Amino acid sequence: SISSRVKSKRIQLGLNQAELAQKVGTTQQSIEQLENGKTKRPRFLPELASALGVSVDWLLN
């Protein structure tokens, strides 16, 4: 799922939720909701993929 991929990649990069949120241009709460499965397809998906160094396709599939 996107939530597990985001969380595992974030941890692999040594980032906390607030640091990832800053790179993406969103809030820590938005990252938390995404990782908890409350958000399925965030509006900041391209920025998120870029910050994590992955493709949008990788996040979604």
Rank of each mutant, 00 (worst) to 15 (best):
T26H: 04
G14R: 07
N16P: 05
P42T: 09
L34G: 01
R5P: 02
L48M: 05
G37R: 05
L60K: 07
Q29D: 13
Q22W: 10
L59C: 02
T27Q: 06
W58L: 02
L20I: 05
T39D: 11
Q33G: 08
Q12L: 10
N61Q: 12
A51G: 03
R41T: 13
E47T: 09
W58T: 03
V54W: 03
L15C: 05
Q12Y: 09
I2W: 07
N61W: 12
E35A: 02
I31A: 02
G53I: 03
E47R: 14
L60T: 10
G14E: 05
K23C: 09
L52K: 00
R5D: 01
L52Y: 00
E35Y: 02
D57I: 09
A18E: 12
K23N: 06
L59V: 04
S1I: 12
S1M: 10
S3N: 07
S55K: 07
Q17S: 08
L60R: 08
V6M: 08
N36L: 12
L20C: 03
V56K: 06
N61H: 13
K9W: 04
R41K: 11
N61V: 09
V56R: 05
R5K: 11
L45G: 04
K40H: 14
K23D: 03
L59D: 00
L60W: 09
L45A: 06
E32D: 10
Q12F: 10
L52P: 00
D57P: 07
G53R: 07
Q22F: 12
S30H: 13
L20V: 05
R43T: 14
L60G: 05
T39H: 11
A51R: 03
S50W: 13
G53L: 06
E47S: 10
S4W: 12
Q22I: 12
L34N: 02
N61C: 11
L45Q: 01
L20H: 00
K23M: 15
A51D: 02
K38V: 13
L52S: 02
Q29P: 07
V56H: 05
S4Q: 14
I31L: 07
W58S: 03
V56E: 10
R10K: 00
N16S: 15
G53E: 08
E19R: 05
Q28P: 12
E32I: 12
E47N: 09
S55Y: 04
A21R: 02
